[in-house]
């Protein structure tokens, strides 16, 4: 718990310092596009395939449950779709990005720090926060909502196709938006943006100050990924609770 408070404090501090650094130095479109490609574009395949699998698995379990109690799986379809949009989609995609992008960003920045490249940037008059951290933060904040849409679509289609082809029921109920309202979509959007901001911050916080060889790099990656994952879980819960409080 104390470790968590410390890490979120470090991320908040890093965020405010990064914002200040960008105000001074600006941010090039080129750096942003590079990171969008590196962190978001390269995660798209993992997210699409992983979420399609996930949707399939979810309905397999729902089918097993439904056969026991309600008998008709199409009844739970709309509720599952809503759950997918507001809960499963944003959280699972965020965790996937935390693993994929969090690990690669913290590995790269930690090895840069250990190899004194971050010192070299500072002495070259280039602020490492504006040059390294800011493009990643912005790229993830823009990219995670897009990945969430992609992942949710993939999961829902995976679910619908499985129901239709494997269980012989009407799969369209799993893409039936009758329960989905603007609150659900907003909830998902807020989660995606906040997690997108948090993941690169958590990945960088320990990495850009890593000292002491290969061991420090390994440690930075481990803590970076775990803190990014935990942060996503906490953000997910807090946002879900807030929306529940607002809408009830």
């Amino acid at each position: 718990m104390r470790a968590f408070v410390r890490s979120s404090g470090a991320s908040a501090l890093l965020f405010s310092r990064t914002v200040k650094a960008v105000r001074r130095d600006g941010l090039t479109l080129r750096a942003l596009l590079e990171q969008l490609h590196e962190l978001i574009g390269r995660s798209a395949f993992l997210v699409t395939l992983g979420m399609a699998f996930f949707g399939t698995v979810i309905v397999t379990i729902a089918y097993a449950q439904a056969r026991k109690y309600t008998g008709n799986i199409t009844l739970v379809g709309p509720a599952y779709f809503e759950l997918m949009v507001r809960e499963f989609g944003p959280l699972t995609v965020a965790l996937l990005l935390a693993s994929r992008a969090g690990a690669s960003a913290s590995a790269e920045q930690a090895s840069m720090s250990v190899n004194e490249q971050i010192d070299a940037l500072t002495l070259s008059g280039i602020d490492p926060l504006a040059y390294l951290v800011a493009p990643r933060v912005l790229a993830c904040a823009i990219g995670l909502p897009l990945l969430t849409v992609l992942g949710t679509v993939a999961a829902s289609l995976g679910a619908a196709l499985t129901v239709t082809h494997s269980f012989g029921a009407d799969g369209r109920s799993f893409i039936d938006p009758q329960f989905v309202d603007s609150g659900d979509v907003m909830c998902a959007g807020v989660k995606a943006v906040l997690c997108g901001l948090y993941i690169p911050l958590a990945a960088s916080a320990r990495a850009i100050t890593a000292q002491g060889g290969a061991q420090a790099v390994g440690r930075a990656v481990t803590t970076g990924v775990v803190e990014a994952c935990m942060g996503c879980l906490v953000i997910d819960f807090v946002v879900a609770a807030a929306f529940w409080g607002i809408t009830r």
Binding site: V57, E108, Q215
Partner: peptide
Amino acid sequence: ARGVGRAAAAAVVFGCASIFALD
């Protein structure tokens, strides 16, 4: 150092991917 970082990152990514696939 770079190799250690890459190995740890690869373990996370392929670990996640294999979990989804096995699931």
